[in-house]
Design a protein around this nucleic acid. Sequence first.
DNA 1: TTGAAAGCGGTACCAT
DNA 2: ATGGTACCGCTTTCAA
Lengths: 327, 327
Amino acid sequence: MNIYQIAEKAGVSIATVSRVLNDSPSVSPKTREKVLQIMEQDHYHPNVFARGLMLDSMKLVGVICTDVSDSFIAEALSLLQAQLRTRSYDMLLFSVGSNQETTAKHLRYLQNKHVDAIFLIGSTFSDTADRQKLCRIAQEIPVIMINGFVDAPGVYCVCSDDTATAARIVDTMCRRGLTDCVMLYDSMTQGTRRKMQGMQQALAQNGIVFTDRHLVLAGETLQTSAAAVEQLIAEGHCPDAVLATSDLLAAGAIKAFAKHGLQRGVVGFDNTVLCDCLVPGLTSVDQHMDCMCETAARIMDQLLQNQQPKQFFTCPSEIIWRESFPE
Amino acid sequence: MNIYQIAEKAGVSIATVSRVLNDSPSVSPKTREKVLQIMEQDHYHPNVFARGLMLDSMKLVGVICTDVSDSFIAEALSLLQAQLRTRSYDMLLFSVGSNQETTAKHLRYLQNKHVDAIFLIGSTFSDTADRQKLCRIAQEIPVIMINGFVDAPGVYCVCSDDTATAARIVDTMCRRGLTDCVMLYDSMTQGTRRKMQGMQQALAQNGIVFTDRHLVLAGETLQTSAAAVEQLIAEGHCPDAVLATSDLLAAGAIKAFAKHGLQRGVVGFDNTVLCDCLVPGLTSVDQHMDCMCETAARIMDQLLQNQQPKQFFTCPSEIIWRESFPE
DNA sequence: TTGAAAGCGGTACCAT
DNA sequence: ATGGTACCGCTTTCAA
């Protein structure tokens, strides 16, 4: 069923049918009605490829993320999906791991797919060559980073205020005398860096110099994180408190402390479902992903209407206090 | 940059260029080399829309799931994504909630998008009208259900052997004298039903009649689940052991028991990251999603090559024993 | 082995 | 308000 057959049945030209499809005002109500009726009864739907070919758009956006099965990213996808739906955009999803080069390759791939925009969730671009690739793509297609940061023309970034929140947490720790606190992280992403800066600021405010010993590489699983903390304990460097860059790492710390019968403040990030499951309940940071995704979608709207949005946006995050580090 | 410009630069016709693009054998090595070289230096990539228009395919599959942020589904997506990538298919993702009608609508939507296949993750089709819609679509496009079951021509299903595994667990419980066990569930999906059947079988084997009291609706959050178990305790119906249809519900049970200082066997499903985080560690069922996704992808392969795969597949699941219900 | 030309199913401009 | 028609970029016969 195509536009020609509809035109023939309705006794009009394909141009008129096309006008009806596109809600053109210059069609008489009578004609429109007749055409619509025939479309209806024949279950006609315009061919998306033909439309794409002419308009160079299929109302499709590409989304590149490191790992769908990360609950933080999964939540972002869920919310972004909802935002896109209200705008009649579909989502082409790529879960590509944390390799930068792979991510860059996918950017190019999506460009060739003629997507209308590209969203990057939690990607890092520390490598210069890859960042330049990103810049080139961004000249042609709107690129919007969620919880990632690259300062380049055409690249728009929405982040949460990790730095401020991490600072607030570490400052609270210091004021309670827990000055020997550490940050558990799995890899030096932009997000980690922002949180680290917050810690550094707070320590400085409390007259403490931020050094390597405040930063602990903890792997990316519960087990590796627990092992890292246990090693600290074994070495006699048991920290007063722990701020982890994810709830999972924080869970590892809780486990390690519990094993040694120790009571220590632990705070995580992302406020995932884990927090309520753990004992003690995990104090964590809710990054208000809904805000970030809505902002990201709005940026897309503006870009596709050739408006110039601001390049950087920050969404507030919130500390959700639980027993692992009470307010 | 299109096929015409390449043809002109190479001094050949567009037909020849097209042949090179499609690896046609009837192009002289010389010509092919020259065309390829020009494509290379001009960074030419065929227009996906034009190609889609002719071939009626963009090497795209639609994936409909209830909720990306469910960790079980997120894992499935991650693995399915990997399978699709090796086959050069892209994934159009829809997270539509658990409403059947909405799911059915999206089937139709994807049909109009001319996707090459549709995957459904964890969907239920209890409503007859919606199931019929599914059947109609399945006549035209391969429909593959992961962890869902509908017996209809053109609908292919990959499930894990929930029934057998649930039976094994409940049988173990009974043999240990924990005959007063209950199943915690959140909604009567196909998966729930399969697990329920397993429980029923095992109880029957142990001379116990399966009744309503073995089935406890526990909502879909940690809190609702804990509340449901606490209510049982308050009513003096504290179960000997609990089998929950998800780890989250199981976590709720653990929490409720802990609050009352009770020691009870608890088993979950999906073997999510939660299991290791909980205290005691949660015994859970690993459904080997990798197997299911690989099978699903293979079914797609066969269907797209007009072969006739079996309609129903079962992947083995495995009990991962932890402290909450030791082996 | 190669080229010419007819689609694929729309959109949009130019007439009328 | 409507129709005719030239695209969009590729695939695929049919001839040469």
